[in-house]
Amino acid sequence: MNMPLVKTEAVMAVPAKTATVLPLAAPKRPPLTRRIVGWLRDLAARVVPPIVVIALTLLVWELLCRKTGATLPPPSKVISSTWELITDPFYDNGGLDKGLFWHLSASLLRVAKGYALAAIVGVALGTLVGQSTWAMRGLDPIFQVLRTVPPLAWLPLSLAAFRDGQPSAIFVIFITAIWPIIINTSVGIRNIPQDYRNVAAVLRLNHLEFFWKIMVPSAAPYIFTGLRIGIGLSWLAIVAAEMLIGGVGIGFFIWDAWNSSHISEIILALVYVGLIGFVLDRIVAGVATIVTRGTAAN
């Protein structure tokens, strides 16, 4: 700032001269066909590798399981013997003899109930633990111990308490999904920058306004990380829980297929479980990107 200004004499008066404007050709939009080709190439680059890997896996599996004495059916046999289940997922012969759609929707409904409960209670408890030092000191050690208990270990206890399979399964989902939600929410709340708290203090936001206008948006990325882990865990737990409690549900379907030695049906069910777990994860991730847009960027 305090540089001595010597050399002023050296600056010569430059004669004024009108600058000529060079016309630049407007960049041409590539023709439609080329754009479509480019777009297809992008798509192919993403779709072809997984297809190749899947095809190779199926081929190896087919070769390994084709010979006599193989314990597992090859993919061709899986499809042929479960063709009825694949083509008609909606049949209902009463009792437990239902199409896969009904089993999957029963499982999804249980997950939805347990998970919704876990999300509400988890965010509430996480907020409490994140906001209050005393709540954290009191509750955090308990959470840290309880979260390591495997989901199925809760099942006998909940059966004893509820004396019914349905609420017990929902409870197992709840208790499985809640820990990551609590822990991530509390970390998110604790990480709210002091600046935002100062802004809230100067504006004299009350507790409710602070919760909705500062806390939730600021902690949203953390909360959604917890929710995403939670949905994955609850889908993991439901299959195991349903194997034990019985009734309509994909877990029971798998167990029932095992008992009747329908290995192909088990494999089909696993494919569905995997796909649905993937879709659930994508849904929560999608909601997260919509809700937290702008939040992470600072």
Partner: peptide, 9 residues
Amino acid sequence: FQNHSLLPW
């Protein structure tokens, strides 16, 4: 505030 403290969302 020194670092603007605008709410980014």
